[in-house]
Design a protein around this nucleic acid. Structure first.
Lengths: 216, 216
DNA sequence: AAGCCTTTGTGAACGCACGCACAAAGTCGG
DNA sequence: CCGACTTTGTGCGTGCGTTCACAAAGGCTT
């Protein structure tokens, strides 16, 4: 189900290319998955395909968007406007998918007041007010690890129920609050693992381990 | 196995806290996983725990680091120094885990020559030379989607065998080259999905779908 | 209008990963 | 030195996701 956004992106690419209809085989290749898996995923949304032909791109885009809740706009706050926060604020992929950057918050006096991506950075002291006034339900945390849990508690108390966390800590939240974590250094470490394996590779007990996790 | 970096981070946290020994239960809680799963993961590396006591933090850190190939230094190139590339270049979590930022590359004349995180941005024309001279085996792609595949082909041709891709495209690479993809907007879309579900939620066939993917 | 061909949707088997629960093992107190 | 307690390491059952393979269904050609 985390694959629906991937399909959606592939479909957007096809639409821009002028393709009107697509088979499960083609779409699966574009998304990098098995065609049977794709068909099963799509069939859970309802029968939106035509046998013998395939799926109508535009219609499928709408259906997936609706399923993902992208037909309505979501207000998002970015907290922490360091390098990463700025990158996220300027990332075009959000606005085009129904996400509205509604507020930027930071604690640093030198950053507060700055204009980033058309928004003025506000002081984190106003967090509660800003979140409630803008009807923000999704918060993006790009703050230092040490501040993450405290900020998390505050946004949750203010009514935020979805958090995208870039800080390298496991956040604890009450039931009903969704947290997704992105950790950039973990991805690199996984690459290093495979890299090491290619470069001669370990031996002994490690080899057994490698065999056990093969393909992961 | 993608969990080893998570354990490693939790262990680093414990080490800084002065903890010398840790039980699987405690470590599992810190990493946000089941304790049995953690023990099984660690047992694949070998028997590094002491029954009745737990695991020695420092020793376990070393063993996991070695398994992940972090005891040797990896040279990494960042290609594309937009907001995201800059954030990555300045991210401290890399250097502390055995990754050395060896080169920054961009095509934009206004960016080339700039000093970022202690490194001078070089022109992408020198890509092949830079990669070979620095023995770079891992490349981070923070370029626009339209340029991603072309840049990817060039780094692969230059000998890079691991790619961390931030561009929203599925890269095609020859066998033996590892690609990991990070897509920031996908994470937000998944949050929106859950958010929509909480806010009243869809009905009809969609409800069946939701039940089918419950907990995901 | 009828049959062929393509492609969807899904039933069923396979495989993997997760988690429980327990036995082995090692430590600490008496 | 022995017994009780703690914690690891793991065998086994369960449940989920993936994949194969095929039947149903619709379009297209003749």
């Amino acid at each position: 189900m985390a694959r629906l956004p991937v399909y959606l992106r592939a479909l957007h690419g096809l639409a821009e290319h002028g393709t009107a209809t697509v088979s499960s085989e083609e779409l699966a290749a574009a998304a990098g998955v098995n065609s049977a898996k794709l068909r099963k995923d799509l069939s859970h949304l309802g029968s939106y395909g035509t046998r013998g032909v395939g799926y109508e791109v535009e219609y499928l885009v709408y259906q997936i968007s609706r399923e993902l809740g992208l037909t309505q706009d979501w207000s998002v706050a970015i907290i922490g406007l360091g390098n990463l926060g700025r990158a996220l604020a300027g990332y075009g992929g959000f606005a085009s998918r129904g996400f509205r950057m509604a507020a930027l918050l930071d604690a640093e006096p030198g950053i507060v007041g700055e204009l980033i991506a058309g928004l003025t950075v506000e002081h984190i002291d106003k967090l509660e007010t800003v979140i409630k006034d803008n009807g923000i339900s999704i918060a993006v945390l790009a703050v230092p690890a040490t501040a993450a849990q405290a900020v998390c508690d505050r946004v949750v108390a203010s009514g935020v129920t979805s958090i995208l966390n870039f800080a390298p800590v496991v956040l604890s939240v009450p039931d009903g609050v969704e947290v997704r974590k992105v950790d950039l250094s973990i991805e690199l470490q996984i690459l290093a693992f495979h890299e090491q394996r290619k470069a001669g590779g370990p031996s002994g007990v490690e080899q057994e381990y490698l065999e056990a996790v093969e393909g992961q």
